[in-house]
Nucleic acid binder design. Sequence first.
DNA 1: ACCGCAATAT
DNA 2: AATATTGCGG
Length: 546
Amino acid sequence: MVCTVNDLQQWKDFPKGLKVLLLEGDATSAAEIKPKLEAMDYNVSAFCDENEALSAISSRSESFHIAIVEVSINSGQGGFKFLENAKDLPTIMTSNDHCLSTMMKCIALGAVEFLHKPLSEDKLRNIWQHVVHKAFNASASVMSESLKPVKESVVSMLQLQTDNEQQESTYTDDDPDPGSDKYPAPSTPQLNQGLRLMDDGDCPEQTNCSIEKESGEHDGEGESKSVETTCENLNSESNNPNEPMNTEKTLVKNLAEGSRDGNHDSSVYKHTNDKVLSSDDGNTKSSNKVDSCTLKAHRKKMKIDWTPELHKKFVKAVEQLGLDQAIPSRILDLMKVEGLTRHNVASHLQKYRMHKRQILPKEEGRKWLNQRDQMQRSYCLQQRPIMAFPPPNHSNHTLSPAPVYPVWRQSGGQAAAMPVWGPPGYPLWHPTESWHWKPLPGLQMHADAWGCPVLPPPQAPLPCFSYPLNVPGMHHTSAVDYKSIMPQSSLDLHLAEEVVDKVVKEAISKPWLPLPLGLKPPSTDSVLAELSRKGISTIPPCSKGS
DNA sequence: ACCGCAATAT
DNA sequence: AATATTGCGG
C-alpha cells in the first residue's frame, strides 16, 4: 500500500515523481539506468547492496512506490532476498539472464514484472502501471481461489519449495491472501514469449483452454476437475476489463497443464509426461525434476492405465453388481479407486461389453441390422449370440466368423502378445480353438481376461430360471450342452442363460419377429413346435408390452 | 443426471 | 492399440 487511490487522485502529474528504488548488482549498471528513470521524472534511489536496499525500505517503506531489482545470477540469492522481503512494494525484476525459470521464479515470488536487460527507456516508462494496479487492487482479493492452482503449479514446477522459500509459505495452499500484495504484472512480450516455450510440449488442447465442458461432472468423482475449474475461472476473470493480464494468466495456466503429471494416488495413472520442464533451459537452481506428488491439481484427465489389477477390480465390481446393475457409477463405487472417474469406468465398461458380445463385423451386422427399428436392433444385438447356435443344418463358421479374442495386456508389456480379450460372452458356437483365453497354463493372464470372472460368480442369480414357464427345449438342451462344453466359466454360463432367458421370453412373446443372422430356421415355427413339444401350449398372448 | 452406444479424437 | 471424448437418444 505504498500508494492509494486517493494518493493517485491527488497526484496531479502522476507518474512524475514516482519514487523508484533501484537495486543493481553493480554501480555501473545502476549509473546506467538511473538517468533513464530520471528522464521520466521518476525519483530514483539507487542501491548496489541488497541489504542496504532492504533496510531502506524497512526504515521508510512508504517512501518508495516501486522497486526495480536486478537478479544477479552470480551471487546466489541476489535480488530474491529483496523480492521476498519487499512484499508491499511492487517489484520489477530485471536480469541479463533470460532464462525462463528465472523469470517464472521471480514472478512466482511476487515480482510484478520481469524485464530483460538491457533496460531501455521504453521498458521503464510504464512501470507506474504497477503502482496503479496495486493501488486499485491492494485491498481487493486479487488472488482469487481460481488462481491458487495456477500458483501451485508454477511453484511446483520451479520447485521453489526446496529452494528459497523458507519464508514464503504462500503457495502451499493456504493463503491466496490479498495481503501478499504482489500480483502478476501486465504481461510483457518477454514473458509471453518465454512461457510459450513451455507449451510446445504436448498439451494440444491448452490453446483452447476455454470452456471445457464437462463442467457438468461435479458429482462424486472428486478428480481432475480442479484445473478445468481453474480454467473456467481464469476465463471468466479475464473478462474483466481491468485485468490486463489475460494472456499471462492463460499462459501460466498452460504451464499448470503442462505440469500435470502428478497424481498422488494409486497407480491408476500412467506417468507419461514429465517432459514439461524440458523446455526449461538450464536454471540450475531449480532444475530438479518436479516431484510428481506436489501437484494436486492435475489438469486434464489422465489416461487410465487399465492394468490387470485395475481391470480385475473392475470385473469384480461388475460381477458383484450383476450385469443388470453394472452401471458406471455403481461400478465406480465398488471399485473404490481413487482418481478413477465415472467416465473412465464408462469407457472401459463400454469396451468390456463390446467384447463380451463380440461385435460382429459390420458387414454381417448390416445384414440383419436394418431389418427393424431401433428396438429390434438392440434386440438383435443382444440376442444374436444365442441365435447363432448352430442350427442342425448350418455350419456355424459360415454364420459367425470366429473373432479374435485378444487377451488383457499386461501393463508391463511382456504379455502383450497374448490375446487380451477374454472369452466372448457366449463362446458356445465358437470353435474351441478360438478360446485363447482358456486356462492357458502358466500365464496368469486368464483371470484378467475380458469377461473372465475374477470371482466366483454369484451362484444364486440365474434370472432365467425365475421364469417357470420359459424353459422350453431350446433352453434345456442348449443349456445342457453349454454346460458340458464350457464348464470353465460359470459367468459365461450365467450370461448365456440370461441371454437365453431373454431370447426365450422374446420368442414367446414375439414369435413373429424374424430371427437375426438370417437363420432361417427354428424361427417361429420351430420355437412354437418346441414349446408345444415341451408341453407348453400356453403362449402368452402376444402383447408387445410383455 | 445418468446410461449406453457409436464415432471420432488423442 | 488403448482410452478418452463427444454427440445423440433414451
